[in-house]
Design a protein around this nucleic acid. Structure first.
Lengths: 228, 228
DNA sequence: TCCAAGATGCAGACTGGTTGGTATGTCACA
DNA sequence: TGTGACATACCAACCAGTCTGCATCTTGGA
């Protein structure tokens, strides 16, 4: 909804209000953001190929001219969704929390992250935007695939680095191939998201979280057992 | 290609040749099968929504009249793909091998099955047909979702029963909740298929298989350790 | 055994609606 | 007064689905 209005936007708005009273006529950056957000929602609902330009426009009260002024084509719009929204979501949910947990146990951090993944019906039914797009487009459009691949890579790298820190701290088992362990975690999370999406049942997701958390606990180093 | 011509078709053909020389004019079941196979391939390539009826027809040299004689609508065609092709693939790759391995170690059987999942570039890029359809359609069409759900359920049930047998035989750990363990395995397989599909790299898939196999080995009962 | 007649299986032109994209005009703003 | 930021009418392509017509097959009766 209003998620898109970032701090920068607010600042620009304030600056304008000092100069002129005109509140928000001709605010191209805002228009672009609204289009992006609406496009993301539409793509999240129907997939990229079936997402309708007209539907996006109807949802934003923006006209076609404006859209094609800001984005060269439907594909370009898709690329922007990946790079500016999907990538940001991954950073927000995974990478930053992992970086913030500098001195904590990375396994605790990962458990917290997995448990914090929202289980609202809307998210459940919609699945993971990253997986949705990868599933649909990676085979059809190399441009899509490369951009998605970057996100996957960053995701895996973030987990790997956190686990490496944990190894140095003696909290994570030494016998693990960390890159593979990170991929394994990602595969589990995505796999369960697919299952839950199809089942449309929060229980399925909760079961998944339980099992993933159990598996994560098994990564602790010998002296780091917390609870059964 | 010619997979669709089943034994029944051959028998009918023989019978016909006795009556008249006409080789295969007017063979409705064969026509239906060819349409189904071509439709499956097209849906596998582009997704259901973006699959074009005309493309399917072009691939089969069948006309629109024939298609809409055999299938009420595009959706009906999709349902048939799920129930007759995708479900069959699951039975073929998972359920029957598990049933066949009656007296063997079910964990060995599962390892064999996972390792036997083809890693050809075509399959890698295309991903798992079941997941593809679930990912795309389960949220948009309840009819699709229900049919896919049945397959998932049968899949999970098949694994659960195999593991239960293993428990009776003392080959599988007693502390497992088998239904959850089965779902966990499915989630892992699907998750890695998504990763491999996006990476388009056989190494990713092989790594996945290694890790899944390792995890499967950890399900063995104490007296059933085979190797590292 | 043969033929008539209805049913089956299919051919292919056609349609109405939707789609991404464009061309041109216009208004705000610096 | 020019350029940035739109608005709107328009278009060609596409797409699922339909309709009519026709060949082939099956069936029932003589």
């Amino acid at each position: 909804m209003v998620i898109g209005s970032c701090k920068l936007g607010g600042m620009l708005l304030a600056r304008k209000n000092l100069k002129r009273r005109a509140p928000r006529l001709r605010d191209p950056e805002r228009t672009r953001q609204r289009l992006l957000q609406a496009a993301f929602r539409e793509v999240y609902r129907c997939g990229f190929q079936s997402a309708g330009i007209d539907t996006i426009l109807a949802a934003t009260n923006v006209t076609k001219g404006a859209l094609y002024y800001h984005f060269e084509s439907k594909e370009a719009l898709g690329y922007a969704i990946i790079e500016e929204i999907v990538a940001e979501m991954t950073r927000d949910r995974w990478l930053r929390p992992l970086q913030r947990s500098k001195d904590e146990d990375p396994i605790d951090a990962l458990i917290g992250i997995v448990q914090a993944i929202p289980a609202r019906p809307k998210n459940l039914k919609g699945g993971c935007p990253l997986v949705n797009l990868a599933q649909e487009m990676s085979q059809l459009d190399e441009q899509f695939r490369k951009r998605l691949e970057r996100i996957f890579h960053a995701w895996q790298e973030g987990i790997t680095m956190a686990l490496r820190r944990g190894q140095y701290q003696g909290r994570v088992r030494r016998d693990l191939v960390l890159e593979e362990t990170a991929s394994f975690l990602i595969a589990m999370v995505e796999g369960y998201e697919v299952l839950a999406k199809n089942a449309q049942d929060a229980k399925v997701w909760k079961m998944g979280v339980r099992n993933i958390v159990g598996w994560l606990s098994s990564l602790r180093a010998a002296g780091n057992r917390k609870r059964g």
